[in-house]
Design a protein around this nucleic acid. Structure first.
Lengths: 203, 203
DNA sequence: GTCTATATGATGATAGAC
DNA sequence: GTCTATCATCATATAGAC
């Protein structure tokens, strides 16, 4: 994707130190973009966090937008792409609740996602394509899960799997925004459970 | 609020031309902030839209953050603060659907709201207090409506009014974001109706 | 690979003439 | 009330020494 390791078998890959540096930059950029947004965060900010010069940083990522996309893809490779992998041991409802609770432990990651997602709908934002495709992927993925439940007769009659998928994603994103602004007065996991208990019939 | 008209009875108010100018600036700033966000939009952009110099603009609004707050409050005074006024002629469900359909006609207003709301959760954003208070107001307002429905026995058993309020607002905001990115593949009004039909029992 | 130095441009805001 | 001129800052990005 963004790295070029093993692109040609006869060439040796990047130095170990180099990949460490890239890692450190990604961590710092994640924090900066989460706290200030893409436009509000500067390369200098990121460089300061890592403890290197701004020009050295641009040696690893040729431009600011490259760095943004690298952060987004790196986040996916760490936390998963947001879809819930099917697991026969765990119901969809439980998996969603578990993920929501886990998210409460990593507010920085939520903040990055929320801020950049909305920022990406503006003009020529470099993250727009990423978020557009991500939502399409998520909608397809959840719709598939809801269709499975429908086949088992466990989806409430009248509920359309596609609409439920878009709604669950929307509810999740929206409640995260409210939670970031007022963590004490919003119960993320509770809201998601409330919705899923309406849509999914008990076994 | 932001204007000082009629602050002292013995002083004459601002010139008519002045208020017209302020109006024009607010309209332009609304468009610019919606398209580029607060940080991404510049005073120069706004001034160009109005056809005046950037310094003249600062004569009407002493700083960029003042302009932002003026835009947000102006938007409320035009479109309402987002709460649904009780109307014996119209059910809550119908009112929400009607508002959602209307919103599809004014994508710029939705974009402004979505972009600035998420941007406001970053660091020292001048709009943060506005959005925090707005969400608290909205949650209280919708919770009251759901409690009324509960007293009439029209809220599905097990649904908590406060949770339903936060969820409806979250769903609405979240689906707007998806709609801004892919208008053709998201049915805003349909999603909201789907949720409300789950929560509110038919008469 | 990392640095200094710098190109180049935009930003929000101020001062003062008219 | 509106302008020109300008300040002080900050941005992304590039060139070239070591």
């Amino acid at each position: 994707m963004t790295t070029n390791e093993a692109s040609r078998p006869s060439r040796r890959g990047p130095y170990a130190k180099s990949t460490e540096r890239r890692q450190a930059i990604l961590v710092a950029a994640h924090a900066v973009f989460a706290a200030h947004g893409y436009r509000g965060g500067s390369l200098q900010d990121v460089a300061d966090h890592v403890g290197m010069s701004q020009t050295s940083l641009l040696h690893y990522f040729p431009s600011k937008s490259d760095l943004l996309l690298a952060v987004l893809n790196w986040r996916d490779s760490i936390t998963g792409d947001g879809t819930i992998p099917p697991d026969p041991e765990e119901t969809l409802v439980d998996a969603v609740i578990r993920q929501a609770r886990f998210n409460e432990e990593i507010p920085g990651v939520i903040e990055l996602y929320t801020v950049l997602c909305a920022e990406s709908v503006t003009d020529a934002h470099p993250g727009r394509e990423y978020f557009t495709e991500r939502f399409e992927l998520l909608r397809r993925s959840y719709a598939r899960r809801f269709r499975q439940l429908a086949e088992e007769g466990r989806l409430r009659p009248g509920v359309k799997p596609e609409a439920a998928a878009a709604s669950l994603i929307a509810l999740w994103d929206g409640i995260q925004t409210q939670w970031l602004l007022s963590p004490e007065s919003v119960d993320m996991a509770g809201c998601l459970r409330g919705y899923l208990e309406l849509v999914v019939l008990p076994e």
